[in-house]
Design a protein around this nucleic acid. Structure first.
Length: 293
DNA sequence: GACTTATGGAGAG
DNA sequence: TCTCCCTAAGTCG
């Protein structure tokens, strides 16, 4: 789940449901105790995402930087029950009546599992589990972190030229380049495999052999796919005509993707068996026929 | 209980 | 390229 679209959904959710609210911040697990103290009692101004990083801004000027890594996830709870964003591990809950403490903060249920950070407002709460990063930083440090990231197709300020400059000069394969967050931010293993398939590009082609037209199309397609992901909450890359049942919503799987996780299965376009290989320490999926260079 | 697996990434060498 | 770190669920013995 946690590719760029998930983080932008999270940012929107935080801004909508926590923006403008005073927050009680704790670390039930204890590993974020110092950071939690720094922002406890502050008001959350807004949230933003850049690639796979989430930044929460507080009125004190402090910023909370969260990276979900491979298995981080947020669980949200309010009067409507619970929902999960990230790597969903826990089933959803039901509507409930909220109790509040004398300060007006919701009395959230006893934390389940290892909750690194808990953020509570007068109307709900959010639990963070398993992040690879959760730290309080300054605005300057936040901007420094953002500056290290490549353009995020989901951000209006994204500059695809910056990615192109790196890609067009690199001997590294396009599949490895797409996974580098300092080249392009927000792409994970699924979007890399699927976007290269949709573009008919051999993942092993060096960046500098990708044509300008191919890059422009790839960027446009990634932008569209990520935007769909933000809207749907799922990564769906297959076009309806390539699904067994074009009328049915394919979620959550198995008809959402062209090649990812489909090793040995027939390509949805040409019928050739999808193959997998290791590339940049991750499993790369491709159709050897549709993606011949 | 040990081991595997997952849509990620930092740091060492 | 390798090692390690985050967490939880499922499998196996």
């Amino acid at each position: 789940m946690p590719e760029g679209h998930t983080l932008h959904r999270l940012a929107a959710h935080f801004t909508k449901h926590f923006g403008g609210s005073r927050v009680r911040v704790t670390s039930p697990q204890g590993r974020f105790a110092d950071g939690a103290r720094r922002i406890d009692g502050r008001t959350l101004a807004e949230a933003e995402a850049h690639g796979k990083q989430l930044f929460l801004a507080f009125d004190s000027g402090d910023r909370l930087r969260v990276h979900l890594g491979l298995y981080g996830a947020w669980t949200f709870g309010d009067a409507d029950g619970e929902r999960h964003l990230g790597a969903p591990r826990v089933p959803g809950g039901e509507k409930r009546d909220l109790m509040r403490d004398p300060d007006g903060f919701v009395l959230a249920p006893a934390p389940v599992g290892t909750v690194r950070a808990r953020i509570v407002t007068a109307s709900g709460w959010a639990d963070l589990r398993g992040p690879s990063a959760c730290e309080v930083i300054t605005e300057e440090e936040k901007e420094a972190a953002r500056a290290r990231l490549g353009p995020d197709p989901l951000r209006p300020d994204a500059d695809p030229e910056r990615a192109w400059r790196t890609i067009s000069r690199s001997r590294t394969t396009i599949a490895a380049l797409l996974m580098r967050q300092d080249v392009i931010a927000g792409i994970g293993n699924i979007y890399r495999a699927e976007s290269l398939f949709r573009a008919g590009i051999d993942p092993y082609r060096p960046g500098r052999e990708i044509t300008r037209a191919e890059w422009d199309a790839l960027w446009a397609d990634l932008t569209a796919l990520l935007q769909d992901g933000v809207r749907d909450g799922y990564i769906i890359t297959t076009r309806p005509e390539h699904r067994p049942d074009p009328a049915a919503l394919p979620v959550p799987r198995p008809d959402t993707l062209y090649v990812c996780y489909r090793t040995g299965e027939p390509c949805r376009i040409c019928g050739t068996a999808v193959v997998q290989a290791e590339l940049a320490a991750r499993t790369l999926y491709r159709c050897p026929a549709c993606q011949a260079r």
